[in-house]
């Protein structure tokens, strides 16, 4: 068995045992980690693999979360449906946003998405009839079905874990083949990629769509997990923390999404003990330091260490 396979198996065993070892609150935190990991995976695809900078992925997270919340609250749709619908809606929204984004190069795309991230809470508050305004929408946590002896938090932990697994397998298959190579080619040398017959416009806007869909699924899951949505939780800081997680985990990597998610879930918690303002100072510091010393993030550093250790001596 190769090392990555062993690592995945160990991680899977830990993930399956955790719900029976931890308190409900801790478990909820790990559910959040999985949710962030799905969103980060989407952002990694777009920014890491395809080189399109998005500072506004919090917007797609919000679309997913509100789609889920409105479906459950207004139309009594079972929560299971909200996840694919949230993803699908974001796929469409993301694809449509991706078309004008085609014309924007690096810096300008960053500007446009930054503006998008800033405007989201306002837009959500404006459509008060649907979104409940600044009060938000309160939901109920789903109970475990078929009389399974699991608490609500344990049950939803497993739901999220399954979704995460499916999304990871999909992403791996998508990125390790022809499509993945096309995305990287567009990032590294758009001109050469086009000369080789890669349809740049189609791939770029599709990547935007798929990336948004991942983040939308994460948003829908988070609406159920937290059982509450409000406009101010989808501010610019959400977008910045997603980007931070992406950078720290490792931009162009799949496993990096997990490391990044662990970081954005747990680091602010202990930083909060120092000062209310500290989490963001630490986020900022990590962003800058990582760009200097570990531009490929934790995933890249691990790969480097592993290669050093297993390199034949001589």
């Amino acid at each position: 068995m190769s090392a990555p396979t062993i690592a995945v198996l160990v991680a899977a065993v830990i993930a399956l045992v955790l719900p029976f070892m931890l308190s409900n609150f801790r478990l909820f935190q790990f559910t959040q980690v999985f949710i962030y990991a799905i969103a980060l995976l989407g952002l990694n695809m777009l920014t890491g693999f395809n080189g399109q900078i998005s500072l506004g992925h919090g917007a797609f997270f919000a679309v997913g979360a509100y789609t889920g919340a409105i479906m459950m609250d207004r139309w009594n749709v079972p929560y299971g449906w909200t996840i694919p619908v949230g993803g699908l809606l974001c796929l469409i929204v993301g694809f449509l946003f991706g078309i004008p984004a085609l014309r924007l190069e690096g810096l300008y795309l960053a500007l446009a998405t930054f503006a998008l991230a800033l405007a989201v809470p306002q837009i959500l508050k404006y459509f008060e009839h649907w979104t409940g305004g600044s009060q938000g929408i309160v939901l109920t946590k789903p109970a475990a079905p078929f009389g399974l002896p699991l608490s609500e938090d344990q049950w939803f932990y497993f739901v999220t874990l399954v979704v995460l697994f499916v999304m990871f397998v999909l992403a791996r298959n998508l990125l390790s083949g022809r499509i993945g190579r096309a995305l990287v080619a567009i990032r590294d040398n758009p001109l050469a990629a086009e000369a080789m017959g890669v349809n740049k416009a189609l791939y770029k806007s599709l990547t935007f769509g798929v990336s948004a869909a991942y983040t939308g699924v994460a948003g829908a899951l988070s609406a159920v997990a937290i059982a509450f949505v409000a406009p101010d939780s989808f501010n610019i800081l959400l977008s910045i923390s997603l980007l931070t997680g992406s950078v720290i985990g490792g931009l162009a990597s799949i496993s990096g999404a997990i490391y990044g998610a662990l970081f954005i879930q747990f680091v602010p918690n202990w930083a909060q003990d120092i000062s209310k303002a500290a989490p963001w100072a630490i986020f900022g510091l990590f962003l800058i330091v990582f760009m200097y010393v570990m531009p490929y993030g934790i995933a890249g550093a691990l790969r480097l260490v592993w290669n050093r250790l297993t390199r034949p001596q001589g």
């Binding site: 900022g284 962003l287 800058i288 760009m291």
Partner: peptide, 18 residues
């Protein structure tokens, strides 16, 4: 360009929180 954008975003949150 991505690295520079990320670094200036880092500066943004650092200034704000400090």
């Amino acid at each position: 360009i991505l690295s520079i954008v990320i670094v200036t975003l880092g500066l943004l949150v650092i200034h704000n929180s400090i």
